[in-house]
Amino acid sequence: MKRLFGGVVGSIVAAAAALAVAGPAHAAAGRYVALGDSMASGPLIPDITGNVGCGRSTRNYAHDLASAMGLNLADVTCSGASTKHMTQSQSTSVAGVDTGTVPPQFDALTADTSLVTLTIGGNDVGLVGVAQNCATLDPTATPCKGTYEAQVAQRTAEFEPKLSAVLDGIRQRSPNARIVVTGYGLYIKPNGCWPVQPVLPTDANFLQGAVNSMNAVIKRQAEAHGDTYIDLVTPSAGHDSCQSASQRWLEGYVPVHAAAPLHPNASGEAAYATVIRNTIDAS
């Protein structure tokens, strides 16, 4: 915007211009809507807020980010959510016990929303279930890669148009929002760490490779829609489930922190919030 000068009038206009340049993502007390699945909701990280079946933590990355940026948060992330739950209600449960139904996540989006974060795809592809089925304490077991590789590849391909539709839907409902789409982190290092995490080296590479393939879809669609993609694999290096308790951002099959298996812990969520904020501040 052209800067105007001229006494008091110039000062007022310059101040207004500065506020405009700051953009909606930086606006004080702007409305921030967090959408997504359990990677974003933070199940089993104290304290729980909202529907207990959603496993939504007050220490997930959305809450950390909102606090750091001074934003008014509407957190509708929910464990078990997939792309369809952006526009459809979701039934929730804990250990098979019904905990009610939550509205479509898109219901939280408004025309005045200034920032939206989205973490989705893991349940569309079914990666946690596959990872659970690949666990083995038998070093002579047949790797699970051959059983699941084609299925995961097909689900990943089917996920891409669904994600595209979700991003279109966000833009339609919140046309002025900064849309930030995260990938998923580094869950296990190359070749794994059997038996600390009970997956064979071949399967450790297959499982993280499946995460990376899903991330590639997320990045491609975010960029195609003019949105911001957040890479969480690179900053997660040295913080995967094979690392010591003090270094882990992501838990393994048996968590060492209060967090769900195969999900980020509080340190991971806080680190993700920092990565997201730094990306927003730098652009």
Rank of each mutant, 00 (worst) to 15 (best):
A34Q: 01
V254L: 13
T99M: 03
G55V: 04
T142P: 00
S82F: 01
G50P: 00
V196D: 11
P104S: 09
D107P: 01
A258K: 13
E158M: 11
S114A: 10
V13K: 05
L262P: 01
V21Y: 12
H85W: 02
A25D: 03
L186W: 01
H26P: 04
A28P: 03
N51P: 00
G122Y: 06
K2D: 13
S114M: 08
A62G: 09
A131P: 00
G53A: 08
F106G: 13
S93H: 11
P175C: 06
P46K: 09
P235R: 10
A14E: 13
L65F: 03
R56E: 11
G10S: 09
H225T: 00
V254N: 12
Q221I: 10
A177R: 10
A131S: 14
K145E: 14
H263P: 04
I120H: 06
S89V: 02
R248P: 05
Q243L: 06
C144W: 07
T110R: 15
G42H: 10
I188Q: 10
P24Y: 01
G185T: 11
G55F: 01
K145P: 06
A204W: 03
A222V: 09
A15P: 05
V233W: 12
V128E: 08
N205Q: 08
P264D: 09
L262Y: 14
A28W: 04
T274E: 15
G238K: 12
D107A: 14
Y253Q: 13
R248Q: 15
S82E: 14
D281F: 01
P198W: 04
S174H: 05
Y187G: 13
P24L: 08
S93I: 05
G209I: 08
L167R: 07
S41L: 07
Q105T: 06
A18Y: 09
V76N: 07
G50H: 06
Y32D: 04
P139G: 02
A27M: 07
T77R: 02
K2N: 10
H225F: 02
S267Y: 12
C193R: 11
S174L: 09
R59C: 05
C78N: 06
G7W: 09
P175N: 10
D227L: 02
V128L: 13
A111K: 12
S244T: 15
G252E: 07
C144L: 10
T119H: 05
V254D: 13
M214G: 12
Q151I: 09
D231H: 04
G226M: 08
T110E: 14
V97K: 14
M214N: 07
D37F: 00
G226Q: 09
A22C: 00
I120K: 07
G129T: 06
G7D: 07
N51I: 03
G121K: 06
I276H: 00
L118V: 14
S164V: 00
G100V: 08
Q208N: 03
D227E: 15
L137M: 13
Q197D: 06
N278A: 04
T136N: 02
D64Y: 14
G121W: 03
S213Q: 14
H26W: 08
I12T: 12
R171Y: 00
S93F: 01
A17C: 10
I120S: 12
V196K: 14
N212Y: 03
V254R: 13
C54L: 11
G238N: 02
P201I: 10
I120Q: 07
T99S: 14
A18I: 15
L118F: 05
P255C: 07
G70H: 07
V94I: 15
H263K: 07
P190C: 03
A216Q: 15
I45K: 02
G122A: 14
P261F: 07
